[in-house]
Amino acid sequence: MKNLIILTLVLFTSCSLSAAVDVIVHPSNANAIDAGDIKKIFTGKAKSFADGSKALPITQADGNPVTDEFNQNVLSKSSSQLKAYWSKLVFTGKGTPPEEAANDAEVVSLVSKNPNLIGFVSKGSADGSVKVVQSF
């Protein structure tokens, strides 16, 4: 019984963890950005925001839990599937995967300095220097 409770707790915790990704942009970016736009930008299918300005996605390192959550919840792909997706584009000159930052802090710092960037961080990592446009 105790094991069951612990198991439930663990499952609950991992569920709540998997709903904890904030997508952030520069505060000056006034575009409405929905989940579909984010998916398109992070898979290379869209290269600009609604106002026509250039959109440059930044992802995080493979091992970061937030990267897996973002890939799973927003892009609906496992990291292997995403790797396969990009290798199809990279080795044919049809696309380039997003640049990779080391952690939340680096994403916040980069996005706060460049209006063209869009990134994702764990919930609570975004500060006043950036704007949260969607949470997953």
Binding site: K54, L56, E99, A102, E106, L110, N114, N116
Partner: peptide, 14 residues
């Protein structure tokens, strides 16, 4: 390599 990419990323937009 990563440092270099980040540096080039910072330059983008300028």
């Amino acid at each position: 390599k990563k440092r270099y990419l980040i540096a080039s990323l910072l330059l983008t937009g300028f």
